[in-house]
Amino acid sequence: MVLKVDPSKKWTGPTRPYDIIKEGVIAVVVVALLAAGLSLFFSSPDEKAVTLKSWSNTNAPDFVQTATGELAGTTTSAGYGAPYNHAAKGPTLGPLKLQDWAGVRIPVDPATSFVTEPLAILNDSSTNDAVTAWKAASADQQGKWATAYADALGKKPDAVSLEDTANAFGPVPTMISSLLVMAKTGALDGALTTSDTPLPTNFTKPLLFLADSEGYFGDLAAKQHLGGDQWGVMNETGSWPGQSWLWLFSLWYQVEPFKSSGNADTLVMTLMGFLTLCLALFPIFPFIRKLPYKIPIHRLIWKKWYARKL
């Protein structure tokens, strides 16, 4: 009997016995045993979450500098743009302003959201007076006060508050000192997570605030090798394996032109989208679809088949 192997036709040649249900059951048992063994041997990571409370108690000067930066508009989130605010146009892809076009759907104005709104909860007259003075001032005046205080703090990196000897800081030192007290007690964490609903499920505000910190949050991540420039996308805390399937995504951030590009996120996401499309289109890709023929690994997979072919 002579057969013609046509992959699009239903197979009518020789067969071998097979039990799909038995195979499936055995596979589930094997994977369950493997997972249980790996869990007993290696467990799983759980590095405790950080808070504005732990930040302000661990590195108060960094908290004070970052909070002042929020008022001065110099932090990452203060200058972010969409979807949080209108401070910038965000990264672009040629004429495509994807980030900006999506709009400000998650409004966060750091000076208001992280500082003045939470301070309004405090029942303290000097704080309330300071916030009233801040709000009454022009944007220009606010900027001058906050920048002057930020500059002065920059010269004394260990300070958590400074005397206003030159009368240049306005209400800023009072506001920041009160915010530090709130943060240290944990009240600020509560204030930032409950501004929308008293039962928090959304951590956008405290996480944006934390991510603005250079001396705490980013530092902790860098120690765990989680930074974007450390292949951090695929890494895990401790010595556990992480999302190794993101290796290619992670790779681009380590090499030029992405590494030093201000548009790295847009470029890498677009490139990965394109490469994914290519992977899906392998069956019609001119060169790649022929690779399995040129590098005959299939000869090993079907070696019995080819061995018996005439």
Binding site: S43, G238, S239, W240, G242
Partner: peptide, 29 residues
């Protein structure tokens, strides 16, 4: 974290130039 082998310590990293990988990820790959 009742593991027979404790992985709760800073990871070892191997790498050449821009290429860096943790031992944990390398084992998987």
């Amino acid at each position: 974290n009742m593991a027979l082998i404790n992985l709760d310590h800073p990871a070892h990293y191997l790498g050449i130039g821009p290429f860096q990988v943790s031992v944990g990820n390398l084992v998987i790959i």
